[in-house]
Design a protein around this nucleic acid. Structure first.
Lengths: 149, 149
DNA sequence: CTTCAATTAGTTGTACGCAATCGAATTGCA
DNA sequence: TGCAATTCGATTGCGTACAACTAATTGAAG
């Protein structure tokens, strides 16, 4: 006799579904910029403050080098960023925008507006949602080790 | 002069982060079942009602055959499901649990509890979150075509 | 100065997600 | 009946995600 899915299971699936639906929305909007959503996230961070190391990008976006290295290589191929080893520490790699990468920001200005228009939630709901999601992420990141024990 | 990220951008990133954090939690919990989260979702659907076509699984989980076909092949390799073409329509494929697949349900009974314990949200918040996420998914799925025009 | 642990980015392998396409089977309609 | 349109699933190709590992470099301990 199968149990009906528990509330937490339903929430997790809703999270998984909504995240994919959101990414699909970005896919449509970002198509004309020729960027994927994770690539757009990297560009957003760099537009906010150019010249970050891979490690710093990883900390901002919670992505490891296994994801970022090939992603940055693609952005480099697109001519949007350039990578260079730091002179004072050859292990580290500085990621900087090219002029084309900086120029792309102008074409991206209307992305947030188009996204916001499509969510269908009012500001109050968005704030509450953001707060709840942040708490989930924070809780899971601090307790993830305990679940395996 | 970089704008601070808009609210909707922050919510979308929070959604993306929380979804990955949740999947990571499932990864730890599902490790002993030797299942990934999407594979677990398929098993949940089949445990709830065995004998579904690929198309029906896709509609339940909002996944297309490009994702489901190789996933189901892996579940078949694991000996958890079997696939068979329908006699009355050779295009369609019926997915059924094997005895091992049914037997795995017993080992999975404590998964929801372990997940629920780790989220750190109370029931009221979970219900509100689920409701908001459902509304986002529903809105995006009905309006996704308009954003590209 | 040498050894060794830690840090950093990159690589490899596996598994999604999804667009695009294909081939087989079925359906609908002239 | 014949044939175009549709449906279904599988496949291909690309881009994440992430675990596990590697290589290079650095810094600290001896």
């Amino acid at each position: 006799m199968p149990d009906s899915p528990t509330l937490s299971q339903q929430v997790c699936f809703a999270l998984y579904s909504a995240s994919r639906a959101t990414t699909a929305l970005y896919r449509a909007v970002l198509k004309e910029l020729n960027l994927t959503y994770p690539q757009y996230l990297v560009m957003l961070v760099l537009w906010d403050g150019d010249g970050l190391e891979v490690r710093e990008l990883g900390r901002e976006l919670q992505l490891d080098s296994g994801t970022l290295s090939p992603l940055l290589k693609r952005l480099e191929h697109l001519g949007l960023v350039e990578r260079s080893r730091l002179a004072e520490d050859e292990r580290r790699v500085l990621v900087r925008l090219t002029p084309a990468g900086r120029g792309l920001q102008a074409k991206a200005v209307d992305v947030p507006g188009r996204i916001a228009a499509a969510t269908g939630l009012d500001e109050e709901e968005l704030i509450a949602l953001r707060e709840t999601l942040h708490r989930i992420s924070a809780t899971l990141q601090t307790t993830e080790s305990e679940t395996t024990s």
